[in-house]
Amino acid sequence: MLFATNITIIKIDESQAICHFTDILPGKYAMAVIHDENTNGKLDTNLIGVPKEGFGFSNNAKALLSAPSFSAPSFEYSG
């Protein structure tokens, strides 16, 4: 079962954003990031579902017609 363990909202300072996570247990994880440019709390898309705002995944996994499967952006975290 896949589910979010942490959701964090941070501001971009100049051209970067730094996010710190605490109390993360060892395991296999993946990250997705959106740049909510209009701060409405969601990733805006056009009429056919193509994102209108920036997004990305860990391991630089690519999204083609949908988000990548868990295996592409996943990574092991040892603690």
Score class of each variant (00 low, 15 high):
Glu14Ala: 13
Asn38Ala: 06
Ile12Arg: 02
Thr45Ala: 08
Ala72Pro: 00
Cys19Tyr: 08
Phe55Ile: 04
Ile9Cys: 00
Ile18Cys: 09
Lys28Asp: 03
Gly49His: 04
Pro26Tyr: 02
Ser78Val: 09
Val33Cys: 11
Phe75Asp: 08
Pro26Arg: 06
Glu37Tyr: 12
Asp23Trp: 05
Gln16His: 09
Ile12Ser: 00
Ser69Met: 10
Asn40Thr: 01
Pro26Ser: 11
His20Lys: 15
Thr39Leu: 05
Asn60Tyr: 13
Met31Asp: 04
Lys42Arg: 08
Asp44Val: 06
Asp44Thr: 01
His20Leu: 11
Asp23Ile: 01
Phe21Glu: 08
Lys62Asn: 09
Leu43Phe: 05
Ala67Lys: 13
Val50Phe: 13
Phe21Gly: 10
Tyr77Cys: 12
Lys52Leu: 14
Leu43Gly: 02
Ala30Cys: 03
Leu2Arg: 12
Phe57Val: 01
Val50Met: 13
Thr39Val: 08
Leu65Trp: 14
Leu2Pro: 14
His20Tyr: 10
Val50Asn: 08
Gly41Ala: 11
Asp36Thr: 10
Asp44Ser: 05
His20Thr: 15
Phe70Thr: 12
His35Asn: 11
Ala32Pro: 04
Ala32His: 06
Ile24Lys: 14
Asp23Thr: 07
Leu65Phe: 13
Asp36Leu: 08
Ala32Ile: 15
Ile24Gln: 14
Pro51Lys: 03
Leu65Ser: 10
Asn59His: 04
Gln16Ile: 08
Glu53Met: 10
Glu76Trp: 13
Ser66Ala: 14
Glu37Met: 10
Leu47Val: 09
Phe57Ser: 06
Lys42Leu: 08
Met31Asn: 01
Gln16Glu: 14
Phe57Gln: 05
Gly27Trp: 00
Pro73Asn: 01
Asn40Ile: 04
Asp36His: 09
Lys11Trp: 02
Ala63Cys: 03
Gly27Pro: 04
Thr5Trp: 04
Gly41Lys: 08
Gly49Met: 02
Asn38His: 04
Gly27Val: 02
Lys42Glu: 06
Glu37Val: 07
Pro68Tyr: 07
Glu14Lys: 12
Asp13Phe: 00
Tyr77Trp: 15
Lys28Thr: 00
Tyr29Met: 07
Lys52Tyr: 03
Ala32Thr: 15
Ser66Gly: 15
Leu2Ile: 15
Ser71Thr: 12
Ala61Lys: 02
His20Val: 15
Asp44Gly: 04
Ile24Val: 14
Ala72Ser: 08
Leu64Met: 09
Asn60His: 13
